[in-house]
Design a protein around this nucleic acid. Structure first.
Length: 554
RNA sequence: GCGGAUAUGAUCUAGUGGUUAUGAUAUCGGCUUCCCAAGCCGGUCACACGGGUUCGAAUCCCGUUAUCCGCACCA
């Protein structure tokens, strides 16, 4: 098979220190990759660029929560059910089914023995039952510890802190919270290299909004920006404003983050021609989502690959945690003036309720205090699934006027969720260029300056001591200014340029004999190979400006 | 998970049941040269792992692992 771009990139990435297969000296394991020195720096640069968009520009706050997540959290969020499927295969029509779709709640072993599990299509007896559980389980503590999972997404760490974060944000909506970190999925069969890993990095933003005001404060500034949307039938080349007015995207808030994502990806260096947004069909939506747009990037080998999901998770998660934990996950929509409501308030008489209901009296009291007294008839409450009648002499009714400052509601969530490793791979693939120089194959990674792992090569033209010491000074000045450099005195200058081109270093600074007298150096541009003579003192400033990576026109 | 193919230095690769296992690139050292992968000399680094057959296995057989292709799966 001829080498395609994926093979070439894999080879280059390993050879030059971007990506290594993990644990290779012990045989390796599918779905795990190490980032070498250049890969780790590239990943850090991508994450920091992401922070510039989501934290600095969009005002989200960043938190950090454990990757080991308590069973209860993922039970409440639906992941325990949704990620654990027992699946059986049909040997005849080669289809797989969830066991529970076929036999309901019958124990599986029994059903297998009795050959009750038959293919819904052709009636053949199904075989090979295997659990498809995408979460890694573990136990916290020794012995009867508490069950836990490695998190399948960082989002739950944000949801479970909602009440604290809402207060941090001084009880105002909208606000966004981000987290960058590892997620884990025990993929059945990882393929496609780093595009499908079992441990992977994600950057997620959970933006909490009022479901009645699904907008974004900066939406007006982007209404005329173009965007390419594919709804599985038609490709719409529209403006962000049109996307919303024509209901291709169903809210301004969602559309805003579609645009922000686009802006981030293009700044990071994805090829606009290999980039689109695609809407999830209703049958591919996650269990928590009501609408989802994927940013898809095109790979020459793998086709269109989802790298970012921008989902409207509605109130799903906060509601789930509210139900399961009992902690208030509401926000308040303030009225212009507090509303005054007359209410027939119940005041329980504990001296009657206590002896009557014993240990249940406390629960009954709590329920009664939230209830409206019936205008007529008897009062009943439901405690532990039992309905009990409360005698008239066990409570008083008083008519009170209650002031309500606003309406309670569960916020909705817009979630842009980025697969960092996928973005990283695509930045390599989209920027991988082959040219031929003097009949030799020559490769260039045309990374934008803001994400390139090394910003500048620093080269004395010869290994003359005088040149080397000036170059060393320039090198340390740059490093003092947080600019990553690669200092190299060996080999010909062409070879040194070539080495930098292959790993995507945008600039090389060369110190030659003239530098000693005119205090100028040469800056060489990777993409044009053009050279510019500039004063030594100006270099830090020039490079800092280049790294700033202003947003491209698109 | 099922079926097929593959596995030799960091990379690409030659090779045979029998001495010390090719060659190139890269890398390191030396000489030389110095603005786009120059040359010469020298050095480091490999038969995926485990078992079997055999006097002898990197080579043949089996298993494992990984990778690639197809199927299935894929918030």
């Amino acid at each position: 098979m001829p080498q395609d771009i994926y093979d070439k990139i894999s080879t280059m990435a390993k050879r030059r220190g971007f990506i290594y297969p993990s644990f290779e000296i012990y045989g390796g394991i599918a779905g795990f990759y190490d980032y070498g020195p250049l890969g780790a720096q590239l990943k850090l640069n991508i994450e920091n660029l992401w922070r510039r968009f989501f934290v600095l520009k969009d005002n989200c706050v960043e938190i950090s929560t454990p990757t080991i997540t308590l069973f209860e959290v993922l039970k409440a969020s639906g992941h325990v059910e949704e990620f654990t499927d027992l699946t059986v295969d049909c040997p005849k029509c080669k289809k797989s089914f969830k066991v529970e779709d076929i036999i309901g709640s019958t124990p599986v072993e029994e059903a297998l023995k009795e050959k009750k599990i038959k293919c819904l299509g052709c009636g053949t007896i199904l075989t090979n039952p295997h659990p498809v559980n995408l979460m890694f389980g573990t136990t916290i503590g020794i012995g009867d510890g508490r069950a836990a999972f490695l998190r399948p997404e960082t989002a739950q760490g944000i949801f479970t802190n909602f009440h604290l974060l809402y207060r941090y944000n001084r009880e105002r909506l909208p606000f966004g919270v981000v987290q960058i970190g590892k997620g884990y999925r025990n993929e059945i069969s990882p393929r496609q290299g780093t595009l499908r890993q079992r441990e992977f990095s994600m950057a997620e933003a959970e933006v909490f909004i009022d479901p009645k005001i699904k907008t974004h404060p900066k939406f007006p500034s982007i209404v005329n920006e173009p965007i390419k949307l594919f709804d599985n039938e038609t490709e719409h080349n529209v403006t962000v404003g049109e996307a919303v007015s024509r209901h291709i995207i169903n809210s301004q808030a969602l559309a805003y983050y579609v645009h922000l994502t686009s802006s981030f990806l293009l700044t990071a260096g994805v090829d606009p021609k290999k980039f689109r947004f695609r809407k999830h069909a209703s049958d591919e939506l996650a269990h928590y989502a009501t609408e989802c747009w994927d940013a898809e990037l095109y790979s020459e080998r793998f086709g269109w690959i989802e790298c970012v999901g921008i989902a409207d998770r509605s109130a799903y998660d906060l509601n789930a945690h509210l139900q399961a934990s009992g902690v208030d996950m509401y926000a308040v929509r303030k009225y212009d003036e507090p509303k005054v409501v007359k209410r027939r308030k119940i005041t329980p008489k504990m001296d009657v309720l206590g002896p009557l209901f014993k240990q249940e009296a406390g629960k009954i009291k709590a329920i009664l205090e939230t209830m409206e007294a019936p205008a007529k008839g008897s009062l009943t409450v439901t405690v532990d699934k039992k309905t009990v009648k409360i005698p008239d002499n066990a409570y008083d009714v008083t008519e009170v006027e209650e002031k309500t400052p606003g309406e309670k509601f569960i916020p909705n969530v817009i979630e842009p969720s980025f697969g960092i490793d996928r973005v990283l791979y695509f930045l390599i693939e989209h920027n991988y260029k082959e040219v031929s120089k003097k009949d030799e194959e020559y490769t260039i990674l045309s990374f934008p300056a803001c994400i390139a792992p090394i910003t500048a090569g620093v080269f004395p033209l010869t290994d003359d001591e005088k040149l080397v010491s000036v170059a060393e000074q320039i090198n340390s000045d740059l490093r003092d200014a947080y600019i990553h450099t690669y200092f190299d005195t060996t080999g010909t200058i062409g070879r040194r340029y070539a080495r930098m081109d292959e790993v995507g270093t945008p600039f090389c600074i060369t110190i030659d004999h003239d530098t000693l007298s005119d205090h100028q150096v040469t800056i060489r541009d990777r993409d044009t190979t053009e050279q510019q003579r500039v004063p030594m003192k100006a270099i830090v400033g020039i490079l800092k400006e280049k790294i700033a990576c202003s947003a491209p026109v698109h």
